[in-house]
Each structure stands twice: as C-alpha cells, then as structure tokens.
C-alpha cells in the first residue's frame, strides 16, 4: 500500500519507524497523529485535534470521511487478526506493521486502556452542535437514513447528523447498529451480548454509546449493578465461567486483537459456546469499537435516549 503513495522505499521504512519524523507532507503527519489517537485513545480527542487538521487544509467533510474510513478499517483489523486467518497471497503489510514490529512494542500496546473507564462528557460538543465537525447539506441518502431511524428508534441519532457530509457511509452505520441490537448465534445469550457492548464502550470511554449500552443491560435483572460491574475494573473472578470466557476474549479483542490465538477459540469450545459465539463476540467488539471511536473522534453529543429499536425500549 505504501509504495503506491510514496515512490521512495526509504520513506515507507521511515514511516514505519515513526511517521512524525518521516520526510512526508505535514498533512500526512497530521493524519497519522489523528489516527493514532483514533485507534489507541479516542477518548482523549478534543476539538483541537479537529482544528489541527483544518489548519492544514483538511475540511470538515474530509475529516468525517477519514473517521468513517477508520471505522470500517477498525472492523477489518479486528476481524482479520481475531479470526487468525491466513495472509492473502502477496500480502506484505502484516510482517511490516504487525505485532512483531520492534518499534511498536517499544511504544505500548494497542488500546491505551487496561480497564473500562468513563470520559468527561463536558468534552463533547456544545451550543446546539451535534459534533465538532460542521454537518453539511442534507441529501436523499441522509433523508432515507433519517426516515429509517425515526421508524426504528423514534428519533434520528446525533451520530447520523455528524456524518451527514458523507451519507454513503450511513448504509454501513445502519447495518452495524442493526447487528448490535442482539446476538446472532444461539449460544451467546442476550445478556452476555449486552455485557460485551457495555465492556467495549467502557474500554473506549465512549460517553455517546454509554446511553445505549446501559439501557440494554437495564432490561435484565439487576441491570444497573451489571452495568456498574462490567464497566468497572476488570476482575475475572467476579464472573462465572461462561461470562468470564466471553468477557476476557472481548477485552483482548478490543485492546489488542493481534494477541488473539487459537487457544482463545478453544476456550469457547471448551465452555460449550462454540465457534459461532466466538465470531458473534468478535463482530460485536469490532462493530462497537468502530462506532465508539467514530463518536469519540468527532465529539458527537450524546442522544437523550438510547439507540434501541422501539419495541426493545419503552421511552
């Protein structure tokens, strides 16, 4: 991929070593710095991060597109490493940028969060803005997505408004939100699925998603206590065997999917959960992580109600 953009092979090597010091345009450096936060600590992003891109000539529409591309790539990264699938023929990126890269192990590992936490919601946008980027004109694609959301949820989530300038991505976001409503395998329970979503959003310290993940757990007995337990410090012994397998795997997938090994899948089989539940949890982590980072990076203001189908949530 890099040789397609940078004709000098040495530049590619210098980027892998440290993009901040590589001989590349300032806009490229700014993008790498922005994506570094998106991937590793999106909850620390502020309007200043958006302004830094604007100052280099990146407009709000493009910033929204970058965030959406990063969201989709987040999903692919977790699915690739989490599934343990073979590299495609001719693939060279993995050995260059992957887990064995010396420079990576020197700077830390994956998501910069060892346990779930919370983010200061005051960092979100204010003054009637739904996000840090300025939404553009509506389009037929956006109107269609807004109609769909109104039918399903009873309102249009601020997340839709925030990405109005790149409406073709709304199809992807709608698919993700639909899939996140419930487990898709027979052995992963709805309760466990809801726990995974809450855990992941806690790890990403996503105030935007917290409204939804908390409401999802409140549908179960002791829902508030469950939410508090799963979004607090990770204590494996506090969970029964099945929950522990599911949540420990979700932690690993959300934090550093490149560490996933075949033994993790065997753990699901040994617990009677099976490969389908494994794939269900991995997808839930990947989809939730993508949406959390999208919301964090654009400073999307929390909705006043959860993004749950109306039949699931009585407002």
């Amino acid at each position: 991929m890099l040789p397609l953009v940078y004709s000098d092979a040495d530049i590619a090597a210098k980027i892998v070593e440290d993009p901040a010091t590589a001989p590349i345009p300032e806009m490229h450096k700014a993008m790498y710095a922005w994506i570094s936060k998106f991937v590793r600590n999106s909850w620390d992003m502020t309007p200043n991060d958006i302004q830094a891109l604007r100052d280099l000539g990146v407009n709000d529409q493009e910033i929204g597109i970058w965030a959406q591309i990063a969201t989709t790539q987040t999903y692919l990264v977790m699915m690739g490493d989490g599934g343990g699938v073979s590299l495609d023929d001719g693939s060279a990126a993995g050995p260059i940028v992957g887990r064995d890269r010396p420079s990576y192990s020197q700077t830390g590992e994956g998501l910069l969060a060892a346990a779930p936490g919370t983010k200061n919601t005051a960092a979100q946008s204010r003054d009637d803005a739904t996000a840090w980027i300025v939404a553009g004109q509506t389009s037929s694609e956006y109107e269609g997505a807004a109609d769909w959301a109104t039918q399903r949820y009873g309102f249009v989530p601020n997340l839709f408004d925030a990405v109005k300038d790149a409406p073709h991505f709304l199809r992807n976001n709608i698919s993700a939100l639909e899939l996140l409503e419930a487990p898709r395998s027979e052995t992963l329970s709805r309760r466990q699925h809801a726990l995974v979503r809450a855990l992941v959003s806690g790890l990403n310290r996503c105030a935007y998603s917290a409204t939804t993940t908390r409401a999802l757990l409140q549908q179960f007995p002791d829902g508030d206590a469950l939410y508090k337990k799963v979004t607090s410090a990770w204590e494996p012994t506090a969970w029964d065997d099945s929950d522990r397998i599911v949540l420990a795997f979700a932690m690993k997938a959300a934090r550093n999917a490149y560490k996933i090994v075949e033994r993790d899948a065997q753990g699901f089989r040994d617990a009677g959960l099976g490969d389908e539940a494994y794939v269900d949890v991995l997808n839930t982590v990947a989809l939730q992580s993508g949406l959390d980072r999208l919301a964090n990076s654009l400073g999307v203001v929390s909705d006043d109600r959860p993004i749950l189908a109306r039949e699931m949530f009585a407002a």
């Binding site: 806009m27 998106f38 591309i69 790539q73 940028v97």
Partner: peptide
C-alpha cells in the same frame, strides 16, 4: 471512491499500523 487532499488509502494503512495488525 477517491478524492480529498491526500490518498485516503493511507487512513486504512494508519489504522492497521497503530493496531499492530498482522493481517
């Protein structure tokens, strides 16, 4: 779907890079 002031494929690369994605 290209466009913008910089090759967007670099965003894909950057996510993989900071995720230490082996795949």
């Amino acid at each position: 779907v290209e466009g913008g002031p910089m090759p967007r494929m670099l965003v894909n690369f950057a996510v993989a890079f900071y995720s230490a994605c082996f795949y």
